[in-house]
Amino acid sequence: MLTDYSLKMPKNIYAGSHALEQIATILPAGLKKVAIFTDKGILQANLLTIPQAVLEEAGLTYEIFADIPAEPDYHQAQAIVDQFKAADADFIMAIGGGSVMDVAKLASILTAGDYQVKDLLDNPLLAKKQVPVLMIPTTAGTGSEATPNSIVGVPEQELKIGIVNPEMIADYVILDGRLLKNLPQPIAAATGVDALCHAIECFTSTKRNPFSNTFALEAFDLIFNNITEACTNPEALAAKNKMLLGSFYAGVAITASGTTGIHALSYPLGGKYHIAHGVSNAILLMPVMRFNEPVIKDYFAQAYDRAVHDGRQHLSVDEKSQYILTQFEHIVTKLDIPTSLKTFNVPETDLEDLVAAGMQVKRLLVNNMREIKSEDARAIYKQVL
């Protein structure tokens, strides 16, 4: 466990069943123009109705940027940043999933100077916050609303890279479960498992510390006990609000600690095969957690004590650890998430390329409590090919 640690969070967070109505109190005086970052799915689902009404009532001009693709590469992110710079807006409202929020973060720090997204791949700290940002997640979730991270694809490396800059932490966050009501189950499930991975990975990271443990355990409890209902029942507003809160807490845990082997080995799956990030994590959840279990079973037992509320606290550490692993498997099965790369026609002949790419993600591999060597990555990938 780290002995020196820090915590960075968004400045203002509003949560609950009617949190969207707080937009009116958030908007700073004297704004000229608001940029709404979103995607076409959000537009088609009419999820901008309340935000637009608030802006119109305030007499504010706004422009919608809805061409943000799912899991963009750095070229696509730069194209949106350029459009934003030309719009001359002085406030960003990001309404969407992780990709929308990640691109909005980049726009918030790249409106001044000659830097581009590509420059931040090598030196993410070059740019500084220029425009305040309000994050409103529509999935629960990537946790992007809480983190200083922006994930972009790098096509020439067939990999995803995380740009990490504290300047990208949101100024305002709104968590409102109403935005999750009509989320398609496959998206809800994939993003929900992503949040579950954030929680358990941060709690078992080499960089774990009292700050990250506090948020990761609370996130784990909320997600572990609500993910199935929240993803399968459109009317389960209470469960959806708990998932949003859990996802946010897990995002905070990332800022204090960091994800581990699951995320490290999943980046090549998104970068080369364009498999959704949450699905990539779900595919690798069991192989990586089984690999790690011999050295993190005590932490699994602590997670059990926090999240299992049926009174079965008499079990041994080994039994509690196995219970958590079994429940992970049940969650993925119940939510009908793919667990094999065969679903995506990934050939076994690509194994060595996967291993080579996965081993490049040292930023996250160093967080894994059990060292993942090339032969370990090879064995893990073989299980899902």
Rank of each mutant, 00 (worst) to 15 (best):
Gln78Thr: 07
Ala112Glu: 11
Gln157Tyr: 03
Glu156Lys: 05
Gln78Ala: 04
Leu121Gly: 02
Asn149Tyr: 15
Ile92His: 10
Tyr115Gly: 05
Pro124Cys: 02
Leu125Asn: 11
Leu121Trp: 01
Asp102Phe: 08
Lys85Leu: 14
Gln78Asn: 00
Pro148Val: 06
Glu156Thr: 08
Ile151Arg: 13
Leu120Cys: 02
Ser99Glu: 13
Thr139Asp: 04
Val131Ser: 07
Asp90Ala: 11
Glu156Gln: 13
Thr142Phe: 07
Gly97Tyr: 10
Val154Arg: 10
Leu120Glu: 02
Val133Met: 12
Phe91Asn: 05
Val152Glu: 08
Ile109Trp: 03
Glu158Leu: 12
Asn123Ala: 09
Ala89Gln: 14
Gly96Tyr: 03
Gln116Glu: 14
Ala140Tyr: 00
Lys118Cys: 01
Asp119Ser: 03
Thr111Arg: 15
Gly96Trp: 10
Asp90Val: 08
Glu156Tyr: 08
Ser150Cys: 04
Ser108Tyr: 07
Ser99Ala: 10
Val81Arg: 08
Gly97Asp: 03
Pro137Ser: 00
Asn123Ile: 04
Gly97Cys: 06
Ala87Met: 14
Pro124Thr: 06
Pro155His: 08
Ala140Trp: 01
Ser99Leu: 09
Glu156Cys: 02
Asp114His: 09
Ile92Gly: 05
Asp102Met: 08
Gly143Phe: 08
Glu145Lys: 12
Val117Ile: 02
Glu156Ser: 08
Thr147Leu: 06
Ile92Asp: 02
Pro155Gly: 05
Leu159Arg: 11
Gly153Met: 08
Leu106Lys: 07
Ala86Asn: 15
Val131Ala: 05
Pro137His: 07
Thr111Gly: 15
Ser108His: 11
Gln130Pro: 00
Pro148His: 15
Val131Gln: 01
Gln83Asp: 13
Gly143Lys: 10
Ile151Phe: 11
Leu134Ile: 09
Glu145Thr: 03
Ala87Pro: 13
Leu120Thr: 04
Ser144Met: 11
Leu120Gln: 04
Phe84Ser: 04
Met101Asp: 02
Ser99Asp: 11
Ala77Gln: 06
Gln130Asn: 07
Gln83Ser: 15
Pro155Ile: 09
Gly97Met: 09
Ala107Cys: 14
Met93Thr: 10
Phe91Trp: 05
Asp88Gly: 14
Asn149Ser: 12
Ala112Val: 04
Met93Leu: 15
Gln116Trp: 04
Gly97Gln: 10
Gln116Ala: 03
Met93Pro: 13
Ser150Arg: 11
Gly141Met: 12
Asp119Trp: 10
Ile136Thr: 13
Leu110Ile: 02
Leu125Met: 09
Ile95Leu: 14
Val81His: 14
Ser150Met: 12
Pro137Met: 07
Asp102Thr: 07
Ala87Cys: 14
Ala146Asp: 12
Ala107Trp: 10
Asp102Ile: 02
Gly98Tyr: 10
Pro155Trp: 09
Gly96Pro: 03
Ser144Cys: 09
Ala86Thr: 15
Thr138Phe: 01
Lys129Ile: 00
Ala94Arg: 05
Leu121Asn: 10
Leu106Trp: 01
Val117Asn: 01
Ser99Thr: 06
Ala87Thr: 12
Ala112Lys: 13
Ala89Gly: 14
Pro137Phe: 00
Met101Trp: 00
Gly141His: 04
Pro137Gly: 05
Asp119Gly: 01
Gln83Lys: 15
Ile109Leu: 04
